[in-house]
Amino acid sequence: MSFAPPFDLLPPLLVGLGKTLQLTAGGILLCVLLALFAGLGKVSGIPPLRWLANIYVEIFRGTSALVQLFWFFFVLPFFGVSLEPMLAGILVLGLNSGAYGAEVVRGAIQAVSHGQKEAATALGFTPRQTLWRILLPQAVVSMLPPMSNVFIELLKNSALVSVISVHDLTFVAQIHRADSLRTTAIFSIVLVLYFAVAQGLSRGMSFLEKRLSRGRDLGGVKA
């Protein structure tokens, strides 16, 4: 074990971190889209949309992310669909977290006081206007803290893609550990790097929450 500062390890690990950030960003983007669609689907008045949303959420929440990854990468080729490891990774991360995100979206919409919907109806808003102009803007603020958890979970799950040989932070760490045997230094740096990204995500979301809730009565009940 070497006691020299392990600066030499940083460049390759930072390259891996770059991949991890790409995976996380792509996954979050897909996650947000899917969470919104499936979350709205779950509260939709149209039964087929509700069924579709429920099936999606139950399947991706109820199976292992690692197995989903194997399936997308190793099984889909048998059906003639070959995905780049990076793309398979982003898809699985987005689909998996989107299922949890859908529950967040659904919960937040349903938590807006019933009186808001009634006031909107009394003023003549259509159901669509009520959803987009009255319910969602209020729900978004309460979605942010639990969504922050979902995003951090997604970041941590991104380490799974190392098994389909995406050169992410975890993959690079394992390669270098095998080469150099500087296990303590490498995995300590990796821990710190994941933690730093998670902190960034968490703080970014808190900032967004504060910005969006400025001047508002968050409860919505007493307003």
Binding site: S113, G115, E118, A119, A122, L123, R216, K222, A223
Partner: peptide, 15 residues
């Protein structure tokens, strides 16, 4: 739309 209503708990849009 020819009917309006005012509620006990106001139900103003807080945002």
């Amino acid at each position: 739309n020819r009917i309006g209503m005012v509620f006990q708990h106001f139900n103003l849009f807080p945002h």
